Computed example of a mutant assay.
Amino acid sequence: MHKSFLEDFSFPGSKVFRYGSTGIPTDFTYKIGISSPSEPDTKILSFKLNPEEDAGPGKGPEIISKKFTHFGSYSARLKVPDARKKQPNVGAVVGYFTYHEDDEEGLSEIDFEWLIADPKIIYVGTWTGKPGNLQRIGRIINLAEGKIVETISKVNYDGKPTLLKGMQNIPESIPAIENYDASSQFYTYGFDWKAAGLRWWMLHPETADTVVLWDYQGSQLGIPHHASKYRMNFWHTKDWAVEGNPESLEQPEFPFELEVDWMRYVKK
């Protein structure tokens, strides 16, 4: 089990993360310890999509913690790619998350996701349970407009969503962050994982105050309880379109780049 750590990707390697498949960095997998094209004085983890790669979350670049993580506070500073001018209907997902599937206990997943066809929208939630009976709780937020699109639970990917209310729906409104665009600059995002609840948040880009995106409590529904692996990935999706644009499923035509400044885990 990992103790608390901060990986700032300053050097060409990592003591706490491994690459998701071959472990060999290439132009279309990952590079660690290179200068950010957005902030030249910042060293980053860089992921680039291979335009010829197949669709699916296991196909694109990914890093995975070498050991398990569990209850605690997770945070990262990252900048998603800007694809709207080059390919506005691209189908591509940035995932910042925990994930582990246990044979006995099932799935443990907590996630932040951005579909880069519209980087004003944030997806947060969890998956728990076993195949055939997977439980989802999730919230979709258009942060530039201050609009919570939905806060739901459902069973399996194609299940009928049920709106969450009360303590499972806090806050009920979120003020807009003017001009929020996850591809325009680096932002700090995080989630706090406890046995009794989950909280997703980010730091306001001007005030550095904590903006609570979802403070989920009052129910055990959807809360993972067994240890997981800490991850970041970037992949092509052909069947998950961004909210409001059903055409955004295209194979990437360019090597869009995800930039990650650091990832932190504080064990509780």
Rank of each mutant, 00 (worst) to 15 (best):
Q135E: 15
R199Y: 00
F17P: 02
G91Y: 05
A227E: 14
I152A: 06
V90E: 07
I116V: 14
S35K: 09
F97N: 12
L163G: 03
E39Q: 11
T237Y: 03
R199F: 00
I177N: 04
S46M: 11
H226N: 13
M167G: 00
V266M: 07
P61K: 03
K165C: 01
L198G: 09
N133F: 10
P205E: 11
P37N: 03
I63S: 02
S248R: 05
E178Q: 13
T237Q: 05
T69R: 00
G125F: 04
A182C: 03
W201V: 06
K160Q: 15
Y157D: 15
P175M: 01
N233I: 05
S183A: 13
R136G: 09
F5G: 06
A241K: 01
G146D: 06
I140G: 13
H236M: 02
V16K: 06
Y216T: 08
I44Q: 00
E109W: 02
W200F: 14
K147C: 02
D54T: 07
T207L: 05
D261E: 10
D181N: 15
Y123N: 14
R231K: 15
G190A: 06
K79G: 07
N169K: 12
W240F: 13
I137P: 03
Y96W: 12
R264K: 15
K238N: 15
D239N: 14
R199M: 05
T162K: 15
K48A: 11
F11N: 12
V149A: 07
E145Y: 00
P51Q: 04
A196F: 08
W114T: 12
I63N: 01
P255F: 06
E145I: 01
D209R: 08
S108Y: 09
Y74L: 06
V242S: 01
T126P: 07
T29D: 03
S219R: 10
P246W: 02
P161V: 10
P205T: 10
E243T: 13
K194D: 14
P171K: 06
S219E: 08
D261K: 03
P40T: 09
